[in-house]
């Protein structure tokens, strides 16, 4: 669980160019100024790359919060 969160944190840092992100569980689209739909898409692609998973078309419209994304990742990688 912690490992997934750490990796997610890294993805967020890359996409939003943040040096420090403390808690990620409550983050969602709009939490940062640059977190618009385009960057959300970039974030999901980054997650796909780093976790070696693939979201389906529907996931892109439903997964808008980190909490849900984290859940989806766990489901996909079977943890």
């Amino acid at each position: 669980m912690k490992k997934i969160d750490d990796k997610l944190k890294e993805c967020l840092k890359i996409i939003f160019k943040k040096k420090n992100i403390k808690k990620i569980n409550n983050l969602k689209i709009g939490s940062f100024k640059a977190w618009d739909s385009l960057n959300h898409f970039n974030l999901l692609l980054q997650i796909e790359k780093d976790f070696k998973i693939r979201f389906n078309t529907n996931d892109f419209s439903t997964l808008t919060a980190i909490k849900d994304i984290s859940k989806k990742i766990r489901k996909k990688i079977g943890k």
Partner: peptide
């Protein structure tokens, strides 16, 4: 079409 301009 988009080329994902904000992408790293």
């Amino acid at each position: 079409s988009s080329l994902l301009p904000e992408n790293s």
